[in-house]
C-alpha cells in the first residue's frame, strides 16, 4: 500500500496543471490592458470597473442570487418535510417515489429544461402567463428539491428510531417531535442539502436558458450571450472574481472545520484526562 507510485503521481501533477492552466490564463488576462485575449499589453483594472458599471451584468447577478437563495430555501423546507414523509412510508411506496425524485438528478439537463419549457409554455397558453422569473424559480425549485431529499434521507436513517417514541413519551406532540427532535437531529443533512441546492442553482445554465424566457436573465445566461459575441475581457474579470469568492469561501469553511476538529480533539483529551 505504501509503495511509491511515481507514474501515478506524475500524472496527478500533470492533471492539476491541465485543470488550472486555463483558469490561471483567464485570471492573468483579466488584468490585460487590451481587448486581445492572447497578447499581453500591460496591467489594468479597467475591465473590473466596466464590469461593475455594466447594468446587464449587475441585474443578471441580482436575478441569479435571488433565484438561488429563494429556490434553495424553499427546497430545503419542502424537501425536508417530504423526506420525513417518505421515510415513514412502506418500502413499496418509497422506492418508486424516490426513483421519480431522482429523475431530475440523473436526467440530462437539456431534457429537464426542455420538458419544463413545454410545461410552462402549454400551461401559460391556458392560464395566460409567460416565461419569466416565476417559471425560472419553479424550474430551479424542482431540480433543487431532489438534492435536499438525497442529503436528508441518510440522516433520517442514522437517527435513533427510538427517539420518536421517547420524545412522545416525554409529552411531545407530533409537531414538537418533528421540530424539536427530528429536525435538529437531521440538521447537518438539511444544511448540506441547502448548500448543494444553492450551488446547483448558482451554477445552472441549461435549465435556466430554456425556462427563463426573454424577459429575465441569470448571470450564466448573460455570460453565454457574451461568449457568443467573443469579445469582452469583462468575462475574464467575472471569472476571476467568482474564483476569488469561491476560494475564499472554501478557505473559511476549511479553517472552521479544522478548528472544530481541534476543539473536539481537545475535549476528548480533557475527558480522557478527567477519567
Amino acid at each position: 500500500m505504501k509503495k511509491k507510485n511515481t507514474g501515478g503521481m506524475l500524472m496527478t501533477v500533470l492533471m492539476y496543471i491541465f485543470l488550472y492552466a486555463p483558469i490561471i490564463i483567464m485570471i492573468v488576462f483579466s488584468f490585460n490592458d487590451s481587448k486581445s485575449r492572447t497578447i499581453w499589453a500591460g496591467f489594468t483594472l479597467r475591465w473590473y470597473q466596466e464590469l461593475f458599471r455594466d447594468d446587464l451584468i449587475m441585474s443578471s447577478l441580482q436575478t441569479t442570487i435571488a433565484v438561488s437563495v429563494l429556490a434553495s430555501l424553499i427546497s430545503a423546507v419542502v424537501g425536508t418535510y417530504a423526506a420525513i414523509g417518505l421515510f415513514n412510508m412502506k418500502k413499496n411506496w418509497r422506492k418508486p417515489l424516490l426513483t421519480v425524485n431522482n429523475i431530475p438528478v440523473v436526467n440530462a439537463d437539456i431534457i429537464t429544461g426542455v420538458s419544463l419549457a413545454l410545461l410552462f409554455v402549454s400551461a401559460g397558453r391556458l392560464m395566460g402567463f409567460e416565461l419569466g422569473f416565476g417559471t425560472l424559480l419553479l424550474a430551479h425549485i424542482s431540480f433543487d428539491i431532489p438534492y435536499v431529499i438525497l442529503s436528508v434521507m441518510p440522516k433520517l436513517y442514522q437517527l435513533d428510531q427510538n427517539l420518536f417514541e421517547a420524545a412522545q413519551d416525554l409529552g411531545c406532540t407530533w409537531f414538537q417531535t418533528i421540530n424539536k427532535v427530528i429536525i435538529p437531529g437531521i440538521m447537518p443533512g438539511i444544511v448540506n442539502g441547502l448548500l448543494i441546492a444553492f450551488t446547483m442553482s448558482l451554477d445552472d445554465f441549461v435549465i435556466s436558458y430554456f425556462t427563463a424566457g426573454s424577459s429575465v436573465q441569470t448571470l450564466s445566461m448573460t455570460i453565454y450571450a457574451m461568449t457568443r459575441r467573443r469579445i469582452s475581457p469583462k468575462i475574464n474579470a467575472i471569472s476571476t472574481l467568482i474564483f476569488a469568492v469561491v476560494l475564499l469561501l472554501l478557505l473559511v469553511v476549511n479553517a472552521r472545520e479544522a478548528r472544530q476538529h481541534k476543539l473536539e480533539l481537545k475535549k476528548e483529551n480533557t475527558l480522557k484526562g478527567a477519567a
Binding site: 414523509g85 415513514n88 410545461l119 402549454s122 412522545q168 407530533w174
Partner: peptide
C-alpha cells in the same frame, strides 16, 4: 399527540403533488 404512520406519510404529499406536475407531466408532454 401521536400521528399514525398514514398521517406521518402525509408530509410527503405536497411534494408528491409537486413531482407529478413538475417531473411526470413534463416528461409526458415530451
Amino acid at each position: 399527540g401521536v400521528l399514525s404512520r398514514w398521517q406521518r406519510q402525509a408530509f410527503a404529499w405536497p411534494y408528491m403533488f409537486w413531482m407529478a406536475i413538475f417531473v411526470v407531466v413534463p416528461i409526458a408532454l415530451i
